[in-house]
């Protein structure tokens, strides 16, 4: 018979219902299992498995996102205990589409993928001014700032944002993405990284923050 952890992982992969994941997570808690084990051997394991399937080409973005929602539902159940036990996310990321640009799909996708990979993500939305980025970065002190742009006209706002953040002397890594951007462009504006799609963005963020690729929670 499958262990409760295997059942949780399976429920995250199959993504039938959030209620099921919540129920199983609660059951594991009631049985007295430690939160760290529920995360590592259950919720995160399921997420890793769907991620692995995605890498093999056997799962697709909507399925990965659904599983991520399942994992979040499970995490909700153990949220307070995560804080109590001092289990930390991999890092804190602030993400947004730069000033003048109102396109959100790619940015949101990257945000969701980061979140489901164990990062704490604050999504500032679209058309985020340079000032707003600076204000949030100063207040929240995230480890990484992720900027998105779809329009060639708004790409320079990425440069402006990165310059403004650096001017504040804040120790933070930066990454950019969006259809017209490239590694060449990222280098030219002083961004630390570039990713062409949501999944490679996760790998790149881990690389920039010196985290091993397979890691989920610290």
């Amino acid at each position: 018979m499958a262990s409760i952890f295997e059942e949780i992982a399976d429920a995250v992969v199959k993504a039938e219902s959030e209620a099921k994941v919540r129920g199983l997570t609660q059951k594991a808690l009631d049985e007295g299992h430690p939160v760290k084990k529920i995360l590592e051997d259950g919720l995160v394991k399921g997420m890793n498995e769907i991620g692995e399937r995605w890498k093999q080409g056997d799962a697709f973005i909507p399925e990965v996102l659904l599983s991520a929602e399942m994992m979040r539902a499970g995490i909700d159940v153990v949220k307070e205990l995560i804080i109590r036990d001092g289990i930390k996310p991999l890092g804190k990321v602030v993400i947004g589409t730069v000033q003048g640009d109102v396109h959100s799909i790619g940015k949101s996708l990257v945000g969701m993928m980061l979140q489901s990979s164990g990062f704490e993500v604050q999504d500032l939305g679209v058309d985020v001014t340079v000032g707003k980025f600076v204000e949030v970065v100063k207040a929240q002190k995230p480890d990484l700032l992720a900027l998105s742009a779809l329009l060639t006209t708004t790409m320079p706002a990425m440069e402006d944002t990165i310059k403004a953040v650096k001017k504040e002397g804040l120790k933070i890594k930066t990454i950019i993405g969006g259809s017209p951007t490239s590694q060449v462009y990222a280098t030219s504006i002083g961004a630390d990284g570039y990713a062409s799609d949501a999944v490679s963005a996760v790998d790149k963020v881990k690389e920039l923050l010196d985290l091993p690729p397979e890691i989920r929670f610290l």
Partner: peptide, 9 residues
């Protein structure tokens, strides 16, 4: 259309 394997179009 979204390329469901990568999230690109």
């Amino acid at each position: 259309a979204m390329n469901m394997a990568t999230g690109q179009v």
